[in-house]
């Protein structure tokens, strides 16, 4: 299975930090039965911006990712530096169509700076790897898992991301083999 990975270009101050996308690509190939294809960056659609919330709508972003998927790329994961939301929730780290074609990961809340703390590049890369594998896991058909170290565990706080590993647990891995067979 090929998963395309690309940056959703945003205004300069919200750009995805250097090194994040290669780290994600490496993690995807290490942890999931996929090959990563680096795709050209896209501009984030202005229509996805909600001025009142000063955030970007994840469903709108997903729609534009779907519309721009190149031929021969069955699934793609967009990476963005802006803060994402869905109408019902105050924010999301990312969202993916379950067993679908498009997913998006935001690194905005993965950065220590977001919480007023000094930057930590290693920690950012570690979180980015986990969230990329998590959303790609959804693309492949995995749902949330309750085993503590599993990458498919739902995280609603950044601390929970730090607690889990970057690989699927044995039972999620078995499910992956099942769905890919």
């Amino acid at each position: 299975m090929v998963v395309g990975v690309f940056e959703l270009r945003t205004p300069e101050d919200r750009a995805v930090p250097q090194g994040v996308i290669p780290a994600m690509a490496a993690a995807l190939e290490q942890c999931l039965p996929v090959r990563v294809a680096g795709l050209k960056p896209l501009e984030i659609p202005q229509g996805a911006y909600d001025a009142r919330r000063a955030q970007w709508s994840a469903p709108a972003v997903l729609e534009s990712v779907l519309a721009s998927l190149p031929e021969g790329i069955p699934k793609a994961l967009a990476v963005t530096g802006v803060d994402l939301f869905i109408p019902m929730l105050s924010f999301v780290y990312g969202q993916a169509q379950l067993k679908g074609r498009a997913g998006v990961v935001s690194v905005a809340r993965l950065r220590q700076e977001f919480y007023g703390l000094p930057g930590n590049e290693a920690l950012l890369l570690e979180r980015a790897r986990k969230e990329a594998v998590h959303e790609a896991g959804h693309l492949l058909g995995l749902v949330h898992c309750s085993s503590p170290g599993c990458v498919m565990r739902l995280s609603v706080q950044v601390g929970q991301i730090d607690l889990k590993g970057e690989a699927p647990c044995p039972s999620c891995a078995a499910r992956l083999r099942e769905v890919s067979a």
Binding site: S57, P59, I86, P87, M88, L89, V92, V143, L154
Partner: peptide, 17 residues
């Protein structure tokens, strides 16, 4: 009645299985 509200919450819950 807002489709985007429905669909995005549904997608979020589907991720939970």
């Amino acid at each position: 009645d807002e489709e985007i509200m429905c669909e995005s919450l549904a997608a979020w819950l589907r991720e939970d299985g």
